[in-house]
């Protein structure tokens, strides 16, 4: 590991100033991804600016009934918070589906958004990788890619974003707040991750030196019937090979509102707008759910080793929406 300087920031402007003074600096949150990447030589910062003591560790209900979550809130605290569990149950489920109890105690919300892909070529410095060394090539396309992208990839990179949390946040229209030397800014999570194109090394819309300070979840009354389901290669403590975050509002058999996002299928959490359009106003039947999944997956461009993901996501969508439709029906009957 390269030697590095370490500074602990006590306020947000101070953190931004420290980082701005050193071109090869990184913010340090929980370190669960960054420290690992420093050990393997993928990341070689000259300075770490520790942001864990910044006053960004609160979860607050906003005036309009949404939530604001500070960037240094740990995954554990986010998942356990009563208002998150009550208002956005799929978010709690998504966070708890990720990593282990130990890692969730360390990892932060801001860091989760910025975690890097677990593509084995990216994490192995002896291999080419366009994300790590622009222009060096992408061995995954002709190599080991069973857990790579089926949507939105490019000939330059087929890596997937590994976050579970981000999938639920995407379904709930989260907004990312960040600060630069010029002041505070915000960007919808939907625009936070850049398209892959020819620049897979440029992952987010954050300007250099920007510090994520938190996320806001707008109110989502339809989120009460929501869930996150994750498929992985063992029962627990593994990254997804496919996941779905969904929320559904069904009345009298007709879909009034639907939110749908996929994980482990693209370089970013994938909002399934085409599927949502197909669902809304239609019947809450397994056939309609499958047709909606197909509407989204028509754009899929699987590789030989990951074509299974198209079927997997389709089946996940049908299963999750069928479950939520039944929940809506029970709620309807109980309030009738």
């Amino acid at each position: 590991m390269r030697e590095f300087d370490y500074r602990r920031a006590s306020d947000v402007p101070g953190a931004v100033a420290l980082l701005g003074a050193e071109p090869e600096a990184h913010y340090l949150g929980g370190g669960t991804n960054l420290v690992d990447l420093m050990k393997s030589g993928v990341e070689r910062p000259a300075l770490l600016v520790d942001v864990r003591e910044l006053p960004l560790d609160r979860i607050e209900v906003t005036d309009d009934g949404g939530l604001h979550v500070g960037a240094t809130v740990t995954n554990s605290d986010l998942a356990a918070h009563p208002e998150v569990r009550r208002r956005y149950p799929a978010l709690t489920q998504a966070v708890l589906a990720g990593a282990s109890g130990q890692l969730r105690n360390m990892a932060t919300v801001g860091g989760n958004l910025l975690q890097r892909t677990r593509c084995a070529y990216f994490t192995d410095v002896s291999k080419p990788c366009n994300k790590r060394v622009p222009g060096s090539g992408c061995p995954a396309i002709a190599g080991e890619h069973h857990n790579h992208a089926i949507l939105g990839a490019s000939p330059h990179c087929v890596a997937v974003h590994p976050s579970d949390m981000g999938v639920a946040l995407t379904a709930f229209d989260a907004v990312v707040h960040y600060v630069t030397a010029e002041g505070p800014h915000e960007v919808p999570l939907a625009e936070f991750y850049l398209p892959v194109g020819a620049t897979p090394h440029r992952e987010t819309a954050l300007p250099a030196g920007a510090l994520i300070t938190g996320i806001t979840l707008p109110p989502a009354p339809d989120a009460a019937a929501s869930c996150y389901r994750k498929v992985r290669e063992r029962a627990s403590y593994a990254f997804a090979i496919g996941s779905v975050a969904a929320a559904l509002d069904v009345r009298d058999g007709t879909v009034r509102a639907a939110r749908l996002a996929f994980g482990a299928v693209a370089s970013r959490p994938w909002r399934a707008h085409a599927a949502e359009r197909a669902l809304i106003g239609g019947p809450a039947t397994a056939e309609a759910f499958a047709a909606a999944a197909d509407a989204e997956l028509a754009a899929a461009e699987p590789l030989p080793g990951n074509a299974y993901k198209v079927t997997l996501i389709r089946n996940l969508v049908v299963a999750v929406l069928t479950e939520l439709a039944a929940e809506c029906r029970r709620t309807e009957e109980a309030t009738r």
């Binding site: 370490y6 370190g31 669960t32 420290v35 770490l48 109890g101 890692l103 105690n105 360390m106």
Partner: peptide, 16 residues
């Protein structure tokens, strides 16, 4: 246990 919470000490920098 760090401040009472379980963590993996291999990814926790001592200085932090």
């Amino acid at each position: 246990l760090l401040e009472g919470r379980r963590v993996v000490s291999c990814l926790q920098l001592a200085v932090a």
